[in-house]
Computed example of a mutant assay.
Amino acid sequence: MRLLMMVPACLLLAACGKEEAAPDPVRPVLTVIVQPQDVQRLGRFAGSIQARFESTLGFRVAGRIARRWVDVGAQVKPDDILASLDPTDQRNQVRAAEGDLAKVQALWINAQADARRQQALYDRGVGAQAQLDVAQTNLKTTSATLEQAKAALRQAKDQLGYSELRSDHAAVVTAWQAEAGQTVTAGQSVVTLARPDIKEAVIDLPINLAEQLSSGLEFLVASQLDPSITAKASLREIEPQADAATRTRRARLTLAQTPDAFHLGTAISVTLSSSVSPRSELPASALLDKDGKPSVWVVDPQQKTVSMREVKLLDRDAATVTLASGVQAGERVVTAGVNSLKPGQKVIVDEDSAP
């Protein structure tokens, strides 16, 4: 009887042992697929397309502007007239120079005749050497005065020509700094011309970013009206002094190619990126500390189980972590429920959670 009573007790204990050894439950988890990146995005900035070469022209003589011949936006060819001064003063100077030249020419003709007469008298023996010397000296002096008068007339004509402001190359008028009727001085800025054949992208960068620019940076320029129109660019120059109001430094970019849609003044957006060593970015919730070492749960796609793997942490913030190594491209990493998993535990993967 005792033996028969012990049998059910043993069976009960065996059943309890089997319940304690029950496998861990299958847990649903959220995951992402590792996608290593070798390019670091540094930001996007607004800018515009501008001409690389601009020139500000002014009259070479002073005067009152009589007329502006072109407006802002006009395309001009070499030697096209842009503006003109009232030429009255310059014309009077030409007339005065012409009168002086005529007077000196008459004196020069008279000096030539006198020198010939004195030379003939001296050759016949009836003229004095002193008179011949005086006549020849007078001829040389008058000849020099004649050359001076001719130069003065050329200068006066040049001054008259300077009363017209002309373009010295094909360009687009981008700004006027003076109006018709305004009196300007010699060299004062009057009009700004831009060469449309060579264009570049111009953006303003924050000081901290401008100081970290390196030769490995890549610039992608896109039209704001049509982002599908893009062009690669490289840094040509950056202004050494920051703008006091905006605390930014202006950067000028050379375009590798210039789409037809990139007209002067076109609004653009420029994306800055830099080549870096391969790295992976994951949600911050994927990282856990195991014995003081950063680790993640990696899902076995065949067995649907997880295993813990130590990783090398490169950077982290409140939302993301950047890993230098430890995971491979295409692997699936758990991003939610990491604290309730065990090595080898089966999981249900939410496929939709993958990017």
Rank of each mutant, 00 (worst) to 15 (best):
S215H: 11
S215A: 13
S215W: 09
S215P: 08
L217K: 04
E218F: 10
E218S: 14
L220V: 15
V221C: 05
V221M: 08
Q224E: 15
L225N: 14
L225V: 15
D226R: 15
D226G: 14
S228E: 14
S228M: 13
I229A: 13
I229K: 13
A231E: 10
A231P: 10
K232N: 15
K232Q: 15
K232V: 15
A233P: 11
R236T: 13
E239P: 11
E239L: 14
E239A: 14
P240Y: 09
Q241H: 14
A244W: 10
A245D: 12
A245R: 14
T246K: 05
R249F: 03
R249Y: 00
R250M: 00
R250T: 07
A251I: 03
A251D: 00
A251H: 01
R252S: 05
R252I: 01
T254H: 08
T254A: 10
Q257W: 02
P259N: 01
P259D: 05
D260C: 00
F262I: 02
H263E: 09
I268Y: 01
I268E: 02
I268M: 06
S269G: 04
T271S: 08
L272G: 04
S275G: 11
S275V: 11
S275D: 11
S275K: 12
S277R: 12
R279I: 07
E281L: 09
P283Y: 04
A284D: 07
A284Q: 12
S285V: 02
S285K: 02
L287E: 02
L287V: 04
D291T: 13
G292V: 06
G292A: 01
G292K: 09
K293W: 08
S295N: 08
S295F: 04
V296H: 01
W297E: 03
W297V: 06
V298E: 03
V298T: 00
D300Q: 07
P301C: 01
P301H: 03
Q302T: 11
Q303I: 01
Q303G: 08
K304L: 11
K304I: 00
K304M: 11
T305E: 04
T305S: 00
V306S: 04
R309T: 07
E310D: 09
E310G: 03
V311Y: 07
K312H: 06
L313G: 02
L313K: 02
L313M: 04
D315C: 01
R316C: 07
A318W: 00
A319N: 12
A319V: 09
T320D: 07
T322L: 02
T322H: 00
L323Y: 01
S325H: 06
S325Y: 05
V327Y: 01
V327T: 05
Q328H: 14
Q328R: 15
A329P: 05
A329C: 09
E331G: 08
V333I: 13
V334I: 10
T335R: 00
T335E: 06
S340K: 15
L341C: 10
